[in-house]
């Protein structure tokens, strides 16, 4: 044995000043990203320490462009050294190659794929942009889209999906999500403008043309653009100056928004609803206004009435109601004086 130790071998040394390193265990998909010729930007996000609605939220996540991974610290009972090959010189001796421990880790970090939806976070973070009787009711949060996303422990891609789903938009330095009421009204204006100007919404049109036509209405431009993106067919590139709406998607969206915009406790005659729905669609799309288009999004409390189904999508409605009631109270008070 002794002879074996004598022959060759690699000198092992421990640096006097250890550096701070962390070890992060990489799942195969992240190794792939890192090994790619142009690795994407990775980032670590942590959630503000507030007791949010969900109990077991991650304190920190690692985000790729479209995925997020929860970071978990795992203590190790072994000594884990990070070593570096180096040349060690003692005084005037010839330097010899050594393996030098330059850091010691007592814990490693594990990554666990996190497939949460950003909807809950965005619903929580974004104030509602409501339009009641032509009056805008919205309290800005002073946060840009980028800033909003930075507070959500999910990847940019996951945030973007939720943002699009909610038709969220930026306006005057704040981020909002529109109420069903707002969406319904904006759509109505878009539809009338298209009719007046002779645009076909299901073939490509200049987004700017519609924006100009709606200039008088005073809607935030970004809201209209967000709506067009929301309604574009899935294979459509929505980054350019053109828009093109998906007929089926749009018809369903208009029907659902109409229902959701209706006060929850009010009866909506199914026949009335279908008529209004048809009137809100371009002439050629009217056939799409039938109940099966919005299958699953409604309930029929009686044989003649219809109501929006409670769900994630219309969770904004009760809030919108309370806001509007408050608004009326305010209005009433000022009157009395």
């Amino acid at each position: 044995m002794a002879t074996q130790q004598d022959e060759g071998g690699v000198l092992f040394a421990i640096a006097h000043e250890l550096q701070q390193f962390r070890l992060l265990e990489l799942p195969p998909e992240i190794v792939e990203l890192i090994d790619a010729p142009n690795p994407p930007l990775l980032s670590i996000k942590s959630q503000p320490a507030s007791p949010a609605a969900t109990g077991d939220t991650a304190y920190a996540v690692l985000c790729t462009p479209d995925k997020s991974f929860q970071l978990r610290q795992v203590q190790t009972s072994n000594s884990v050294f990070i070593t570096q090959s180096a040349l060690d010189a003692h005084g005037n001796e010839i330097p010899v190659p050594v393996v030098r421990a330059i850091a010691s880790c007592t814990a490693t970090l594990e990554l666990h794929l996190f497939t949460g939806s950003s909807l809950t976070y965005l619903n929580h973070a974004l104030p509602i942009y409501d339009i009641i009787d032509g009056e805008v009711d919205a309290a800005g949060n002073g946060k840009s889209k980028a800033e909003t996303f930075s507070h959500i422990p999910l990847s940019e891609g996951q945030c973007e999906v939720g943002w699009k789903e909610l038709v969220a938009f930026e306006f005057m330095g704040s981020s909002y999500r529109p109420s069903p009421n707002t969406l319904s009204q904006v759509w109505k204006s878009v539809n009338s403008a298209a009719l007046a100007e002779g645009y076909k919404l299901d073939s490509q049109f200049f987004t700017d043309d519609i924006l100009k036509a709606l200039d008088q209405e005073g809607y935030p431009g970004d809201l209209i653009i967000a709506m067009f993106r929301h309604l574009a067919s899935d294979d459509q590139d929505t980054s350019g100056p053109w828009s093109c709406l998906d007929q089926t998607k749009t018809a369903a969206f208009v029907g659902q928004t109409l229902l959701a915009a209706k006060r929850r406790d009010a009866d909506y005659l199914t026949a009335d609803f279908l008529d209004t729905w048809k009137d809100h669609l371009p002439e050629k799309w009217r056939r799409a206004a039938e109940l099966k288009t919005i299958d699953g999004a409604f309930i029929l409390p009686s044989s003649t009435t219809i109501r929006a189904k409670f769900g994630v999508a219309d969770s904004s409605t009760p809030k919108a109601d309370s806001v509007s009631r408050k608004w009326h109270e305010k209005f009433g008070k000022t009157r009395k004086r």
């Binding site: 690699v10 421990i14 990070i82 070593t83 570096q84 180096a86 050594v98």
Partner: peptide, 24 residues
């Protein structure tokens, strides 16, 4: 610098991981 470890353990930066039970 020259890396004295077996080639398989080489990395571009010369960093490697060594784990042991106990402390030195």
């Amino acid at each position: 610098t020259e890396n004295p470890l077996p080639h398989l353990l080489h990395t571009p930066s010369g960093l490697a991981i060594l784990e042991l039970q106990g402390t030195i």
